[in-house]
Each structure stands twice: as C-alpha cells, then as structure tokens.
Design a protein around this nucleic acid. Structure first.
Length: 880
RNA sequence: GCGGGCGUGGCGGAAUCGGUAGACGCAAGGGACUUAAAAUCCCUCGAUGGCCUCAUCGUGCGGGUUCGAGUCCCGCCGCCCGCACCA
C-alpha cells in the first residue's frame, strides 16, 4: 500500500509516451471489426486552446475510449480549420505572413492538445490551408461546376467606400466599417454560388431520418430551409400610373385567402419596378438609395423601422378591375425571398399592420375567429393571424381559410392573361412551393482562403483551370499595406494565359468561404493519404458517416446544413455514396465564468483575483489583498471580459485528468458549464480519493482468491450489485452522452466501496474477491474520463497490459434484479407512506398491503376508497 | 424583428414513460485527528411551524388537463444562442 499522493505531473507524460510508442490509437482502414467514427468539430488555429476546446475534446475522447473498449474500430482524428480572417488581421496588425502565423499557431496548439491525453490518431492530421488538402477542394469545385451545382449570381455585399473593400458582417459596427468608420453601402457583385437550393426538399425530408440529432437542431434547420406552399399572382398595373415597359407585378403569397383584405403592394428597393420608378421620381430614388445605405445583416434589416414610399404606381386587384392598390417600395421586403414583392393585408399580418398604421392606409379584417361577431370584429394594433371564417370577402365569405385558399387558387389558375412582351396567354395565379433557403454564396474577396480554380478569359469567358494544373496555390510574397484583397494586389499572380485559346487572361482572385473547407474534412479523414482524389470511395463508404459528431450549437444551422449539402454534391460527383455525413450529432454548451471588475470599472482576470468566504457570501480582492473587486455576472469566457482560464495553467497545476473530470461533472453537456476554482478543487480531491481507494482495495483484498467464489455473502453481494449497477448505468450513460450523470453514479459507487472497505479490514475470501472486482470495475469506469490516473491504478491493481486496451467489463444481469421493491404510497396524490413488497407481488397483494397501513387509514379519514391505482414497479395511489 | 433553447435549495445539477422533488457534487456550519495548519474522516444542511419516526408550503409567474404535473397544454416574465462574409 502506498500513502503517497498521486502525482499527475509525473504520471501523465509517462502514459502519453507509452500510448504513443505503442501507437494504440492509430486506426487501420482494413481493421475487420465494426467501425465507430467519433469526431469533434476541428478548431480554428487561433494560437491557444481554450476551455471550450477542453470540454469538446474531452467529451469526444470519452466516447472514443469507451467505444474502443467495447470492441469497435474507432476512428478519432484531428485537424485544423486553418483558413480565415484572423490570419489576415494578424498580417495587417503584426506584419506576420498568414501562412507562418497559422502554422506556428497549429504547432503551439497541437502541443497543448497533446497534454490532454486525447486518444487521437495524429497520423491523419491535416490543415485546410495545406495545398494537399485544398487541391482536392478545387477539384471538387470543378466537378460540381460540371454537374451544374455551381453558378454565377449577383449578390449584395457590405462595401466600405473609403477602404474600397468588402466587409464581413463582423466588420460592420453600427453600420460603419470597423477600420475606416465610413458608413457601409450595399453593393452588388458577381459571386460563385453552390446550388444548395436544388436539394432543399431533400435536405428537409432527410431530417426525419436523423434520429440521433437533437430535435432543436433539426427544427432550426427545418425553419431555416423554410418551405412554404403558396400562390404566385400576377397583378396587372394601371398603365396610366406605370413607367413605360412595365405592365404587371408578380408576387408570392402564402395567404391568398386574405386577398380581399389587401390595402397595398410592397416591393423591394432593388426590384426592377422600384428601379424604374426611381428613375422618374426623385423621392423614390432618395428612398431606394437610403435602403442601400445599410449593411446586409438580416437582424439589422429586420429591426430597422418599417419604412416605405409610394411610387405612384397603382396595381389592379385580380378579382375587381375597379379596385386599385398603391405600390410602395418598402425596406422590409427582400428581393432574395419569393419575387421581391408582396401584397399587404394589414388585418392579418403584423408587419403590414404596422406599415398601414404609419401611412394611414386602413385595414379590413377578412378572417373572423370562431365565436366572434363579424360586425364588431375590429383590428387596431394587433393583427389576427389565427384560424377562423372568411368575412368581407365576397364569394369567399363563410369559408374556412383552407377552403378560401383553394378557391382563390382555382379561380386564378383558370384565369388567363397575356404575358408581358410575348402576348402568350398564361394563368394569373400559379401554385408554387417556395423555400426561404438561398443558394450558398462562396466568393470571398480575401487572400487567406482556398483559391477558386477559374480563369477569366476575354474571348473564352469563364474557363476552369485544367486538372493537371491543380492545385492553384496561394502566392507567399504578398503585402497587406493596402485594404482589400492581397491576391488581387499581387503584381503577377493573377496574370495567366487562357488554357483554351492561349491569350492573355486573369485568374479569379476571390477565394472560397471557409465553410467550404469544413464541409468535407470529415470525409478526408477517412483517407488523408490519397494524393489523387478527395476520397477513396471504398474507404470513405466504409468509415462514413460520422457516428458521433460533437460541437457547439452555434453551428446548428450553417456548418451542419452546408456539410449535409456537400455530401449530397459529393455523392452526385462520385466521391462518396451516401447523403448524410453525421449519423449522430451532439451540441455541447459553452464554458462560462464569473467576471471581475476593479473599482475603476476595468475587468480583471480570475488569475489576479483572490476569493474569500465571508459567511454565506463570497468576496473578491486583488492578489495584493487590499483592492476590493466586484464579482460580476457569469458570462461566456472572452478576452474582452478577461474571464478566461488558461488550460495550460490548469493542466500544469492539477493535471489533465482533473481538468477533464471537472469538464464532465455537474453541468449537463448540452448546457453551459460554469468554470470555478472550487469545482476544480473538488475534481482534484476525487482524483486523490480514487488513488487512495484503489490502493486500499489492493491492500485489503490482496489475499483474494483468483477464482470466482461459488457463493457470496450479503456484504459481497451488495458490493457486487453496486458495481454492476454503476457499470450498467455508466455504459448506457456514455452512449447518451449524459456524462454528468455517469460521474454521479461513479461517485456513488466509490462511496459504497469506501464504506465496504471501512467495515472489512480482514474480509472473507468472497468479500475480498468482490472488493477486487469492484476496484477493477471502478478503474475501468473512470478510464475514459481520466485515462492517465486509470493506467496508474490499473498497474497498482496488478492488471496486465494497459487499461486503454482492456475490453469493457460485462454486466452480470442477475445482479441488476432487485428481490423486493419499496413503493411510495399516495393518498389523493400526496405521499403518505411506503410499502415494501416482493418483486413479483401482484396487484391484489399490493392493494391489501397498502390498505392495511395506518398512515393510509389515517389519511383517508374514514372516507371510502374509490379506486386504487397501482403503477407496476413505480407507485401506488389510493383515491378516497 | 424572426427562428431555437433554457429557468428546480446558498450554488452546479438529478429525477428513461406524467408516478417518492432535491441523487451526486460545491459552498457553509458543527465535531474528530493534530502543538498548529494542510490533508483526511464523521454529522447537519429547501422554507415555515411544531410534539424532530409530524404537518403545511415548495421546481420563474398566472391559468388548465389528470387519481397524480419539474415533466403535458395555453398565456406571460427573464436570460442565452443563431440569422446566410466570425469560425
């Protein structure tokens, strides 16, 4: 027996070296066992890992280690999402080349990650900025182009008129450029888009097959795709009021039933009709220009005041040639959705109601809720969007909404009118399924991204770079002394000869959105050594999909949806043969921490603060012991709030196992976890306790027989039940990623073992055997969470080999069965007593036992028993 | 603004299915050991009242369904995440 404390600082590097030497985490693609692919979202190489990474990778590692023990061929790789804006910012601010900055950061972060003891197959590591990775991405871009999945399209971008550059939404602060301070403008640019909308219906339908995804993520994706069924309606325009060449306005609506409640038409500022009106009317032009003087972020557009201007144009109601509606340009109508034009029915749409109330256009309710008198039904500031019957709607009156929609659709489909220009007759109304989802614009006017392998030739047009010329690599001799795209500024890079005609031509200088890089890395991990193709299909098809993907909720929509699209596009071009990349998805919560402020209001970091207890209250002072510090709200760890904790410090002080254990304890993994010094100390105490407990078990049970005894006494049986109960719960808990509950069960089991040891200084052989079994099970249960400590304990127990390679223990089902059960007894829903009955007691027996209880008789107070509800194995409720 | 989520003791949280609310831990208080401290071990720990093997109340707020609601439904309040060029 040892009385020494467990020394993480010595043990952890030792076991990490051992694992490394034996290459036990290297995955072979030809391993015949069933595969299990665990993946955590790969990090952006910012330079240092943060606690969010520690939490994310610990969770993945627990799953990987547990599944490995259960006999799976586990694939658990790691790489770097290495392109992106911060590298360019570093180049501007610190004059370091993006490439050098990025690879230095990768080296530093890899070193940090390696101290965590993760069971990763580092042989598969790559960074998305490696030409050997993006070469294949360029190849796939060209495959997609040939497959009709890539197009050119005009898109709006944030334009900084002073720096003459495109800004990311993040770089627009209160409508101004972050460096220049100039008011940003919307500007149209030709962009490359990936045709994700071609898969809109499939991406929506397939959500139903993703049964191991969180419901909330599937719901968010469903809403993002935004399928709606409605009607395209061609409104005729009154020629007297309409600019030359315009004869009709096409709108999309999901509420054709409310057509008789229409009060106005509204079109987007960049709608052709608005452009035509602006050319004639300075007031309209001023408004259209005003609309362009704002960023492109949706939240900003939506929260801006609803404004509009009357174009003077009048549209004709499709059911009444005498009824004219004013056409407004409105800032809340988007060209990107539907046809960029709507009809406004203020009584039944809040935005429309706010709009008419502002411009005094009035409203007429056309849907009346059931039970309300139509004569007195008035709308003032709250639109009614519920169910009801049609009123004030001529031939629709009395119909339900659904009937009215159908009737309007039928009538307008039957009505024909000449198409503008052609004279060909076409229906005025057409049923249409519309999606909110837009195609994925991937062009970025930035240097540090994957070059788009296209050459623009004045005579041949858009020419793909020939496959033999790939990759198109980034030049390294670039400067960042002027704003804008450094690739574009490069003196020679973009000048090439056309691969088709040989004439002078220019390379595309836009690079790809970094979401492209992260939309297929998981497939590349299955065979990162293939130099000829993005994937080796027979390998990818065996190792994919990812069985358990883990990452932050912030990626619930974009990254996950783009990846789902990319798999489909890769399937269409022969790189994989399945549509879904992630069979199981888990979104983990953030790591948050208290904030601290000095008397002058400045934030101070946790490392500079001392916390003292003052009765029930906690107080904080600076390390000088003098200056009081205000303890502020708990917030997401961020540099600006200075409430970050450095994983290096924690691992250096307490060891990786303590950090890992704490990250998994307390909070449910999908919720935020509060990092606290007390919590870490608690985890550290448990590390020491477990070490003592295992060593005491060795000392007490050293005499245990090697063979399993035929009979077990009461104490041994109780311990075995506790061990196998914990084993059962932890095994299923890891499967469901309920780590906090797993840890509680492990602690409970450890408490039971401690109690047993306390009572058994000289145990009988059967108890000694049970103690040794319990210690072994305990070490195996903690091994996925605290692998270094577990190895040390495994050695102390005299077990052969490494616990990291030991098979997961098997549960003995007989030990999970209880002989008798204790049921709570309620009288009229309130708990009054408990009754203990044999496991197989039938209902009449239980009822008799319950009615005999004094507490039940008392609670009934002489009232007759009306009925007794017996929920098997759960509860008894007596109704009096 | 739109979409999504969350809310349980002093604190983090537990409670497969609607079935004993508060598992497990943290903090706190009391005690043991110690010259002392650290470490460790034991006890108490939702609120109120009381006859401490007892009763009432209690899961953000207000209603509802049910024999029974933290869990389901309706309406609020508060906080957090995403919104297409941050990753």
């Amino acid at each position: 027996m040892t009385s020494e404390r467990y020394n993480a600082r010595e043990s952890e590097p030792k076991w990490q070296r051992r694992w490394d030497e034996l290459k036990i985490f290297a995955t072979r693609n030809d391993d015949p066992r069933p595969k299990y692919y665990v993946l955590e979202m790969f990090p952006y190489p910012s330079g240092r890992i943060h606690m969010g990474h520690v939490r994310n990778y610990t969770m993945g590692d627990v799953v990987a280690r547990a599944m490995r023990a259960r006999g799976f061929n586990v694939l658990h790789p790691m790489g770097w999402d290495a392109f992106g804006l911060p590298a360019e910012n570093a180049a501007i601010e610190r004059k370091v080349a993006p490439k050098a900055w990025t690879y230095d950061n990768i080296a530093a972060m890899k070193k940090q990650l390696q101290t965590m003891g993760l069971s990763l197959d580092w042989a598969r590591e790559f960074a998305t900025c490696d030409p050997s990775y993006y070469k294949h991405q360029q190849k796939m871009f060209l495959d997609f182009l040939r497959a009709g999945l890539v197009e050119r399209e005009k898109r709006k971008v944030n334009w900084d008129p002073v720096d003459m550059t495109v800004l990311a939404n993040e770089q627009v602060i209160d409508g101004r450029g972050w460096r220049s301070g100039a008011v940003v403008e919307q500007r149209e640019m030709s962009q490359w888009v990936l045709k994700i909308t071609k898969y809109a219906q499939d991406l929506l339908d397939a959500l139903d097959t993703l049964d191991r995804w969180p419901d909330k993520v599937r719901l968010m994706q469903r809403n993002w795709i935004g399928r709606s069924e409605g009607l395209l309606i061609r409104f005729a325009l009154d020629s007297a009021t309409t600019p030359q060449g315009e004869t009709e306005l096409k709108i999309f609506t999901t509420r054709p039933d409310t057509l008789f409640g229409a009060k106005f038409m509204a079109i987007a500022a960049d709608h052709p009709l608005a452009q035509a009106a602006a050319a004639k009317d300075p007031k309209v032009k001023a408004f259209v220009d005003e609309c362009k003087r704002r960023g492109t972020a949706q939240a900003d557009i939506d929260t801006a005041e609803k404004l509009g201007v009357d174009t003077g144009i009048r549209a004709v109601h499709p059911f009444d040639p005498e009824w004219q509606l004013p056409v407004y340009v409105a800032n809340f109508v988007l060209m990107e959705y539907g046809t960029g034009a709507i009809f406004g029915c203020p009584a039944h749409d809040q935005r429309d109601l706010d709009f008419v109330n502002k411009y005094n256009l009035g409203n007429t309710p056309v849907v009346c809720p059931e039970g309300q008198d139509p004569a007195s039904f008035v709308i003032t500031d709250t639109a009614f969007d519920g169910d009801g019957r049609m009123i004030n709607s001529r031939f629709l009156d009395g119909m339900t909404i659904a009937e009215a929609k159908e009737e309007v659709a039928k009538r307008l489909e039957a009505e024909l009118r000449a198409l503008p220009g052609s004279g060909e007759q076409a229906p005025v109304g057409e049923r249409k399924v519309n999606f909110r989802l837009r195609d994925w614009g991937i062009s970025r006017q930035r240097y540090w991204g994957c070059p788009i392998p296209i050459i623009h030739c004045p005579s041949c047009g858009v020419v793909p770079v020939p496959a033999t010329d790939l990759p198109v690599t980034l030049p390294e001799d670039v400067t960042f002394d002027k704003p804008g795209n450094a690739l574009d500024h490069h003196p020679s890079w973009k000048h090439v000869s056309c691969p088709q005609c040989g004439g002078k031509a220019q390379r595309e200088t836009d690079t790809m959105d970094t979401f492209v890089d992260s939309s297929w890395y998981f497939a590349r991990f299955t065979d990162p050594w293939n130099e000829d193709a993005p994937t080796t299909p027979e390998v990818a098809n065996r190792m994919m999909p990812v069985d358990q993907y883990i990452g932050g909720v912030e990626h619930a929509i974009l990254h996950l949806l783009y990846s789902r699209f990319f798999m489909r596009a890769m399937q269409a071009t022969g790189h994989v043969s399945m549509p879904e990349p992630f069979a199981g998805m888990f979104t983990q919560g953030m790591v948050v921490h208290e904030t601290y402020r000095k008397p002058d209001g400045g934030f101070v970091s946790p490392a500079e603060v001392m916390i003292t207890a003052d009765g029930d209250r906690r107080r904080a002072v600076l390390l000088d012991g003098q200056t009081p510090v205000e303890i502020g709200p708990i917030e997401k760890m961020s540099k600006s709030k200075r409430n970050t904790v450095d994983p290096d410090d924690i691992i250096g002080t307490y060891g990786a196992d303590t950090a890992r254990w704490f990250m998994l304890s307390d909070s449910p993994p999908d919720r935020d976890v509060i990092w606290s010094e007390e919590g870490v100390k608690g985890a550290s105490r448990f590390v020491q306790r477990l070490w003592r407990l295992v060593n005491e078990s060795v000392a007490i049970a050293g005499s245990a027989p090697a063979d399993r005894p035929a009979e077990f006494g009461a104490e041994a049986l109780a311990l075995r039940k506790s061990a196998h109960g914990a084993l059962d719960k932890v095994t299923s808990g890891i499967e469901r990623l309920h780590f906090n509950v797993c840890l509680a069960h492990i602690r409970e089991f450890a408490n039971n073992l401690t109690d047993t040891l306390g009572k058994a200084s000289t145990p009988t052989p059967d108890l000694a055997w049970a103690i040794r079994e319990a210690a072994i099970v305990l070490v195996q249960l903690v091994s996925p969470m605290m692998p270094h400590l577990a190895e040390e304990c495994w050695e102390a127990l005299g077990q052969p080999g490494l616990v990291s390679e030991a098979p997961w223990p098997a549960v003995e089902p007989a030990l999970l069965v209880k002989d008798s059960i204790t049921l709570p007894v309620q009288v009229n829903g309130k708990k009054r007593a408990e009754v203990t009955v044999p496991r197989d007691a039938d209902n009449p027996q239980i009822e008799a036992a319950v009615l005999a209880l004094d507490a039940v008789k008392q609670a009934l107070d002489g009232k007759p028993v009306r009925k007794i509800i017996v929920v098997p194995q759960r509860i008894v409720n007596v109704v009096g």
